[in-house]
């Protein structure tokens, strides 16, 4: 019964996202075409440096990952800022389904655009830039990808809880988590280059281990891994559990705090 309601709610909140994408196709321009051009700038950086072809694949993977990162951070976590503004947050909070299905619905609804963006990056990378992509073990690849995704969405939910209490401040916080995250998580280069300890510290962001793991699976002899793949899988599993549990608790905690402080509605 509760599960069914949660599922209905996920579907309900996903709906405006999916029809929105169809009714206002302008996102194809500003959320797909233009940002992808930005990703490929890094391909040319490596070309200008005469780097081996595998580096092109690094960029492609980083570029595809950005699509997921943006979906989690902007279309899910920071979305509460806008919902609060519009007065929807109160209605969501009052609804018996709770906030988690609503967050999942936002993410799910944004998934279409996200997947398209990631797929286009990979396709253009392979077709136009001849990025070498070879996967040595598909099961491992899929496992790392899935764990990474769960941990990532858990992290996003965790951040969304901050928006229950804060508005503009949390928004700037998410804005901060762009270039610096692309840097420390090694979106465009092997994270090992930052040094073992910086890489380890950056592993709190699940993308770090996920990208490094996937790259090791793809280029076993070429890629300088941070840790052995086995360890990275374990680490990701731990992060997935950690962030999901933490997010649920944090949402409950912040909801209570927001009710206490009267911060669920927007006051001019």
């Amino acid at each position: 019964m509760r599960l069914q309601r949660a599922w209905y709610a996920i579907r309900g909140r996903a709906y405006p996202r999916t029809v929105g994408a169809a009714r206002e196709p302008s996102w194809i321009f500003y959320d797909l075409a233009l940002p992808i051009l930005g990703v490929f700038a890094f391909v040319f950086v490596y070309r200008a440096l005469d780097a081996p072809a595998q580096f092109t694949s690094y960029v492609i993977m980083g570029g595809a990952t950005i699509a997921f990162w943006m979906n989690v951070m902007w279309n899910m976590a920071a979305q509460f800022y806008w919902e609060k503004h519009q007065g929807n947050l109160e209605l969501y909070m009052m609804a018996p389904c709770g906030l988690v299905p609503i967050l999942l619905g936002m993410a799910w609804g944004g998934m279409l655009a996200t997947t398209v963006r990631a797929a286009v990056v990979v396709a253009v990378g392979i077709l136009l830039f001849k990025a070498p992509l070879a996967v040595s073990s598909w099961p491992l690849f899929v496992l790392i990808f899935t764990l990474g995704l769960i941990a990532l969405y858990g992290l996003g939910m965790f951040f969304s809880s901050l928006f229950l209490l804060w508005g503009r401040e949390a928004w700037h916080m998410v804005s901060l988590l762009q270039e610096p995250v692309y840097l420390v998580s090694g979106f465009y280069f092997p994270v090992r280059a930052l040094g073992l300890w910086v890489g380890m510290a950056a592993s709190i962001i699940p993308i770090t281990l996920a990208l490094d793991g996937l790259r090791q699976v793809m280029f076993p002899s070429f890629h300088p891994g941070l840790l052995p793949v086995r360890w990275e899988v374990l680490g990701l599993a731990a992060l997935a559990v950690l962030f999901v549990v933490l997010a649920l608790r944090m949402l409950r905690f912040m909801e209570r705090l927001a009710r206490q402080e009267g911060r669920l509605s927007f006051r001019w």
Binding site: L49, F55, S175, Q178, E179, P180, V181, Y182, F189, L194
Partner: peptide
């Protein structure tokens, strides 16, 4: 956020790409 972390982050990405190669 806007005058230190993001711009320097963007620059350092390039710097590390350079050093990796």
């Amino acid at each position: 956020v806007y005058s230190v972390a993001r711009p320097l982050g963007g620059t350092l990405i390039l710097v590390f790409m350079f050093f990796v190669v």
